[in-house]
Design a protein around this nucleic acid. Sequence first.
DNA 1: AGGATTTGACCTTA
DNA 2: TAAGGTCAAATCCT
Length: 347
Amino acid sequence: MEKIGTLECKTIISELTQGKELANQLKNHLHPEKSREACGSLVEKILSSYENALSVLNCMAMLGETASVSAPISESPNSLAGSPRSDGSNPFSKDQNQTDVFKKRKILPKWNEEVRVCSGTGLEGPLDDGYNWRKYGQKDILGASFPRAYYRCTHRHTQGCLATKQVQKSDEDPSIFEVNYRGRHTCIQERLKQNKEDYNVQKEEDSNHRHAEEIVISNEPGIKVETPDLNPAEEIFPSFSFPSTPIVSDGLETKFFLEPAKESNFTETYSPAFISPATSECNYFSESLCQMNDFWVDHNLQSSESDFTNIISTTTSVTNSPFRDWDFTTDSLEFDPSFPLDTSKYF
DNA sequence: AGGATTTGACCTTA
DNA sequence: TAAGGTCAAATCCT
């Protein structure tokens, strides 16, 4: 097969994804009573073709990326784990790897949350999202009353997980923490395991702790995914079409998508969320929470390079629990070995 | 002792 | 060039 550059790949992916989205929109607007089935079938075929093409290209793109970006992360001690920056004795590690870091930063999906915590809880930060974070920096932001804290996944070095987040108190309301997530967790297995454990534990607990939260995925404003190098809509909707990881089809994650409007046991579903962000271990403090109704999350999935913003909204609880799974949604354009589609025939 | 946090310096981006 | 993001040594914590 002719070699296609990663950039070209991404362009193709972008175009295909846009086409797919347009087909989706067309599908939604199709209401002819007569040929509804025929049209629907046709659209489904179109979407299927897009999906297949995208999955192939995704694999190709990711294979191209892993050679240039991912490899140094895991193989070089001078990469993210801490490269000698000031001595300049290793121009490659400095110029190449550092550049890779910032290039990588650009292409990582981003999304925002606003998390409200009640005063008097003694919390130093917002509720966490079930992941283990390590704080690696803090900056005073111009015009902001509160500094911004930088967190990255604790498993960055052990598992090469590139997920990061930024936490900053809101100027308007100090009880609100604005959380900006970047990148997805590749340490998913551990988290999933923990989620399942929590899930099982919580199921055994009394239902007194139920704080029903409706997870609604609709076309209301609220969620924006920021995928700087890709069209946002292209990211969101394909992912719904073919979730790239088995996670969503296994266990509690599924609840959010298959039974979004049903009553959802909050603690059962979100208990991993109540972890202090200031600590990397799981310090649950759900007891310090105020009424769950006081908590809200505004998930903003947004694009930095497109005026087009697809909005999928949710009223949800405190954390990004359901939407840390937006990781996988935004990852749909990334290679996942467990992706069910058999792409071997293409190679 | 090992891991997490703090904080000033360095680097990239706009 | 300023602002934001990251690194890494120093320090703190368990």
